[in-house]
């Protein structure tokens, strides 16, 4: 079938969301690791900061990213009329 302008907008919105969340994923993982030695003297909750990020902080961010994506995409489906019928 032919895609409408609305469909294309939905896909672009999806790509924007995916790109933004992947950028956060990348920064939290590789950004912090790259500067780990420089950040090692900063304390957070009694942990050295890079250790805390690797052991807990990054993981919490991952969970939140996936949760946000699921929520936002399910909303976008409704907004652009591409949601599945019924549940």
């Amino acid at each position: 079938m032919q895609l409408t302008e609305r469909h294309r907008k939905y896909w672009r919105a999806n790509l924007r969301l995916t790109g933004t969340l992947l950028a956060i994923w990348f920064a939290v993982t590789f950004g912090v690791v790259w500067f780990a030695r420089e950040l090692a003297d900063i304390k957070f909750l009694n942990f050295p900061l890079p250790f805390w990020v690797g052991a807990q902080g990054a993981l919490i961010v991952y969970v939140l990213l996936v949760r946000h994506y699921a929520r936002r995409m399910n909303e976008l489906d409704e907004e652009y009329g591409v949601a599945e019928d019924g549940r």
Binding site: T18, L22, T29, P50, F51, G54, A58, L59, Y62, V66
Partner: peptide
């Protein structure tokens, strides 16, 4: 020690890729 955290991050962070790029 710290260097082992590659496994902790790797085995959880991969699910961000599953969620955003593949599963749906």
């Amino acid at each position: 020690g710290y260097d082992g955290l590659a496994f902790v991050m790797g085995w959880t962070g991969g699910y961000v890729l599953v969620a955003l790029l593949l599963a749906p």
